[in-house]
């Protein structure tokens, strides 16, 4: 990574801002139970990092995710959420009742924290991929028009 992308501003903003934004998004996701944050904010932050890297480096960016893959991953995120909801149904609970999740835990609220983390991962993937997806569709259409 010694090649320069363009001017000094683009170079510095790619090397400093993009990794910081991605790591901060993951921190917001995993720390969302103890501090302000959660799935939606983490997904939007991660999408902002990837969109920034795409705006700087173009379509051949290192962190790039193409539009077709983004649609699939958005579905996968929603499916993770719904699966976490359906899983307790097979172990004697209600829909989205985290007390019946089949994970080893000593106390009940640990199971609840595990369920909250799982559904927030689902929300994060869905929001992030939807934002990338819409931006990709808009820019692709512009390429055709040109």
């Amino acid at each position: 990574m010694t090649k320069r992308f363009g001017g000094i501003v683009l170079d510095i903003s790619f090397r400093v801002l993009v990794p910081f934004t991605l790591v901060y998004g993951i921190y917001i996701l995993t720390h969302g139970e103890f501090s302000p944050g959660g799935g939606f904010q983490a997904g939007a932050l991660l999408a902002a990092g990837i969109v920034l890297s795409r705006l700087i480096q173009g379509r051949s960016a290192g962190f790039n995710i193409s539009g077709e893959h983004a649609v699939i991953w958005a579905g996968v995120g929603t499916f993770i959420y719904a699966l976490t909801g359906f899983l307790p149904l097979f172990f004697g609970g209600n829909f989205l009742d985290y007390s019946f999740l089949p994970f080893p835990a000593e106390e009940l609220h640990e199971l609840h924290a595990m369920g909250i983390l799982l559904i927030e991962i689902g929300v994060t993937i869905c929001v992030m991929m939807t934002i990338i997806d819409i931006l990709d569709a808009v820019t692709e259409r512009a390429d055709i028009d040109d």
Binding site: E33, L96, H112, I116
Partner: peptide
């Protein structure tokens, strides 16, 4: 088990509403 009450209400007490929100995001995309 989450000290942040907003996350607790959104993800646990009102988990079904958040499932609807996520589906709406997906359908919009």
């Amino acid at each position: 088990g989450s000290p942040n009450i907003v996350t607790g209400v959104l993800a646990d007490y009102r988990g079904f509403d958040t499932l609807g929100e996520t589906s709406v995001m997906f359908v919009a995309g």
